[in-house]
Write a protein that binds this DNA or RNA. Structure first.
Length: 316
DNA sequence: ACTTGTGTTGAC
DNA sequence: TCAACACAAGTG
């Protein structure tokens, strides 16, 4: 029935071009794209890419050619500023707020958003919560300066990952009690997946995104999308402990995260349990695993998204 | 099995 | 800098 609920969500018409490129639907032939930074994929979809310093930065694949073009535009704005040529100039004319939003984000995160098709969501959230002048400082969420000024945090809860948590199921089961107590409430009726963005403090500000949802079938709260990737890259193994903590009251910004739905800064700490067999993926270049001692991975959570607007539903 | 994303090359 | 082509890596 909902074969492509997610597909529909991902297509979330960035802006639909309006009158620029009305005809989108990928043609079976697709010789090349009319849009800059857009390349056809073997399967008929469209990929977006931008180049920087002789290196290609992949921006993800999209069903709609225009969506891919828009993704390129976003990247171009962040990478090259307004000077860069874009596919939909008009779309950015009155997007001053968007520019501010982009400026406050690391390139890597922008790219990550584009790849995961969450940019639109993140942007809307940021704009919505930035009604005040605290746009960049608090509303926008991941402001570099602000993030760096959050040294303290209070523990929330911990969980030792089970084999299934790090297995093929690609999910982390969050203890119900803790989930309901510390995580945003999930309305089963709305079935709106919540997006949690975490900045990997130990990974040079890398951002991770997890989908937080409730599985009625097993009646459990889980972190799904993005979790498997995290497990792999960090070499998380069964027995390791994942500790969630929350940033100390954001006194600096004056924003109180007392209510659900408001930005809530969280950290997650992974303590590697000692094991004889070093079943470690061995991610090159990461160097997160000293190889023996307890490895600590710290994440910085920026916000919680209520992606209801998009209408995406992953829980049934 | 299918899709994504990278290697790689050559044109602009 | 950019995209076409090939194909390996990733995902379900």
């Amino acid at each position: 029935m909902s074969t492509s609920t997610q597909e529909a969500a991902e297509q979330q018409d960035w802006m639909n071009g309006g009158d620029e490129g009305a005809a989108a639907v990928a043609s079976p032939r697709a010789p090349s794209s009319r849009y800059k930074g857009v390349v056809p994929q073997p399967n008929g979809r469209w990929g977006a890419q931008i180049y920087e310093r002789h290196a290609r930065v992949w921006l993800g694949t999209f069903a709609d050619e225009a969506a891919a073009a828009r993704a390129y535009d976003v990247a171009a704005l962040r990478f090259r500023g307004r000077g860069g040529a874009v596919n939909f100039p008009a779309a950015h004319a009155a997007a001053a707020a968007e520019m501010a939003f982009l400026a406050a984000l690391p390139k890597s995160e922008v790219v990550d958003m584009l790849r995961k098709h969450t940019y639109d969501d993140e942007l809307r959230q940021a704009l919505r919560s930035s009604s005040s002048a605290a746009a960049a400082a608090a509303g926008g969420g991941r402001d570099r300066a602000t993030a760096m000024l959050v040294p303290r945090r209070v523990a929330l809860f911990e969980k030792d990952v089970t084999p299934s948590d790090v297995g093929r199921l690609n999910r982390l089961v969050v203890p119900k009690l803790q989930a309901e107590k510390h995580f945003p409430q999930l309305d089963e009726t709305a079935a709106a997946p919540v997006l949690l963005a975490f900045e990997d403090d130990a990974g040079g500000g890398k951002v991770w995104r997890f989908r937080y949802s409730y599985w009625s079938s097993s009646q459990s709260y889980v972190l799904t999308r993005g979790w498997s990737r995290f497990v792999r890259e960090k070499g998380l193994a069964a027995g390791d402990t994942v500790a969630f903590s929350q940033a100390a009251a954001a006194a600096a910004s004056g924003i109180d995260a007392g209510e659900v739905g408001v930005k809530r800064r969280m950290f997650i700490e992974c303590r590697k349990r000692k094991r004889k067999g070093s079943s470690h993926s061995g991610v090159p270049g990461d160097g997160c695993c000293p190889g023996g001692g307890a490895r600590v991975v710290r994440l910085f959570g920026a916000n919680i998204a209520a992606a209801a607007a998009i209408g995406a539903s992953c829980v049934r």
